[in-house]
Design a protein around this nucleic acid. Structure first.
Lengths: 243, 243
DNA sequence: CGTTTGGCTTGATATATGTCAAAATAGACT
DNA sequence: AGTCTATTTTGACATATATCAAGCCAAACG
């Protein structure tokens, strides 16, 4: 079965090997023995494929598994009683998604693919079992959850104390940094999300986001062509955030 | 040594027993055996006392322990490079504080007591050990971390999509609910924090917070006397948030 | 008991961002 | 290629919140 035969709607299962995965150091601790690695692979040997717009899960879905993003990207968003919505994150390869659901066994937010994407399913009950036997895996899981808390606090700082252009600059710098982690260019960004989504994430209206992009371009900070953004001056963008 | 002899500056140690603690069901899973309970008590038998303004920890401090608040309350805040600050939470009895530090082994934010407060220290390495042996404790820890993530996402929704008065109403309702959990009145609130802190938490200036309080009072929603707030109409306050 | 101090309230005004509307552009589909 | 649709940009204007400034109040203190 060739990769491009997979229909995302079927959530096709595919065997994968963590030991060969080039994202290994993002998902797993570094010091696993061969035997431990085999046990982990047994846990997460199922891969699922999605296309843009597909839901990985919806608010209210019963929680069973975390997901490690193997390729592509997702956005997560929370919905209010009255339909108000807030994009809470844009997640890319190597990141773990679904941590919010552990608290109640029900997904609190929803996750939507922003492009062709693949995830490894990590049944959480098995993950807990395994992490009881493998201390470094246990600690790694704790770090991942803690990192999510730190990330969220950073966004609270952004939403609570920064103005529109500072928020957008921080957003671009964050994308740049995460691009770099994956060995991609820190200055050539291909945005996977709309201005509306960026606005929701940054607590701004889409028009404000668009104007900020235009203004950055006028100032020679970036070059914008729709969703292709080139950062001309990383230092000046950083200045903008820290002032 | 009597309780009121304790000097907060000394962070005096006191033996405490979880099994007698009336906050037990907030900190611990319900189904611990007597033997397991004894082991947990061994983990967390140290209590520390603080007075208003004392730091529980500062950003940059090496991470060693989580803390369970036994009495009183703390605020946590993150600081930016340029001195910008954001209050990220107001924590009260029964809540666990310090989860953000697990990710890097260094505290990312700082925690300050808002009144006379006591905490139980939970050395994290020991907590991890213990939770390897006691699956329900392990799962409980995961739930606590996940709950923090959900809480943070709720604040992101508030900061990103609500207007000033909606934010304040949500804040008051949250306090009311947590008061109720502790068997206290859901309508008689004694605020432990200043308008400045509320403003920082809600992403507003203190004047805006003050005006919103005044306006709520004019509308007959609440009765404000400095930091003593009486909620007159919970339903109308809820309406405000969900519209 | 009067003074000091920090926190809170209130008013007048400024400004960043939202709102509404229209045009431009880019992608998707025949 | 050409039409259709969704997304993005841009402009004019409205408004929520910030800013600046003054006065008020209550707890703390000499």
């Amino acid at each position: 079965m060739a990769l491009n035969d997979i229909n995302a709607q079927e959530h096709a299962h595919l065997r994968v090997a963590c030991s060969n995965c080039n994202l290994r150091e993002l998902c797993l601790p570094v010091d696993l023995s061969t035997e431990e690695m085999l046990r982990v692979e047994e846990l997460s040997h199922h891969k699922h494929c999605y296309t843009a717009g597909d839901y990985l899960y919806r608010a209210g879905d019963r929680f069973k598994s975390l997901y490690a993003i193997r390729s592509g990207s997702f956005k997560t968003r929370v919905l209010n009683a009255d339909g108000r919505e807030q994009v809470t994150g844009f997640l890319m390869a190597g990141e773990i998604i679904g941590l919010d659901a552990i608290s109640t066994d029900v997904h609190q937010c929803e996750a939507v693919a922003m492009e062709e994407s693949e995830v490894c399913e990590l049944p959480f009950a098995r993950l807990e079992e395994l992490s009881r036997d493998i201390p470094s895996l246990q600690h790694h899981l704790h770090k991942i959850m803690s990192r999510e808390i730190v990330r969220d606090q950073g966004i609270m700082l952004l939403l609570g104390s920064m103005r529109a252009e500072e928020r957008l600059a921080a957003f671009l710098l964050n994308l740049s940094q995460r691009n770099a982690i994956h060995g991609m260019s820190p200055t050539q960004l291909r945005l996977r999300m709309s201005r509306l989504d960026i606005g929701s994430y940054l607590g701004l209206k889409l028009e404000t986001v668009s104007r900020a992009f235009s203004h950055f371009q006028e100032e020679g900070l970036i070059q914008v062509k729709a969703r292709a953004v080139e950062i001309i001056s990383l230092p000046r963008l950083r200045e903008l955030v820290n002032k």
